[in-house]
Amino acid sequence: MRQVDHRNALRDVAAVGPGMGVLGTSFGLLVVGSGLDWWWAPVFSVVVFAGSLEFLLVALAVAGTPLAAIAVTTLLVNGRHAFYGLSFPLDRIRSRAGRVYGVLALTDEAYALYTARPDTSLSGPRIVTGQALMQACWVGGGTVGALAGSGFGLHVPSLEFVFTALFVVLATEATVVGREATGPLLAVACALVAQLVAPGEMLLVAMGLFVAALLVRRRISAAREAAHA
């Protein structure tokens, strides 16, 4: 029974694990390339375990960004995670420790892999094992990359683009899935305004403007619907 769970989890993770390992490696290279000690890579990946945010944190930390700005950036960049729990099949996990880990390790990949599959054979141990395997790939890749970067002085400037490419892919994917253009266009407008008005606090200003713009847009469309009714 348990063996079946482990084998299934291994098969689940085969689809995303190698990619997480490769991306983790470039994260490790970025950590040492930014001038931090190699062991910060596993520390970030074990404690924070949020891929795209970790790349951003290293850049923000090296720039000495104030903690308040780090907090708001985390809140907004990882804000999407607050919506994953609405449909993640946590009720399949019986053990208390398993449930806690299931929530702690509720990443983009875990959500994508285990939500939206009406598989009745999806067991708790299978989900938890899958999540642990994904974290192992991510932490392992990061450690290997960081050690290679510090041990062999491996410095590949073009690898820094992996970070940009990751966000470009996430933005493209989310825009396609969102099936509407005004939201993304509002985001571009907010980003450009913030870049012009407050280049030093661009992220905070842009994200604040964008959340406000979405709420106002909702108000307007709700008012319009009420007027039609």
Binding site: L76, R80, A171, G183, A187, A191, L192, L203, L214, L215
Partner: peptide, 24 residues
């Protein structure tokens, strides 16, 4: 409804803002 609305539209916009930030 507002929670669902933010959940639907926040991710794409936040990622786009990050890309503009990186290119900035």
């Amino acid at each position: 409804a507002p929670v669902a609305d933010l959940g639907r539209h926040l991710p794409a916009g936040i990622m786009i803002i990050l890309v503009v930030h990186l290119l900035g």
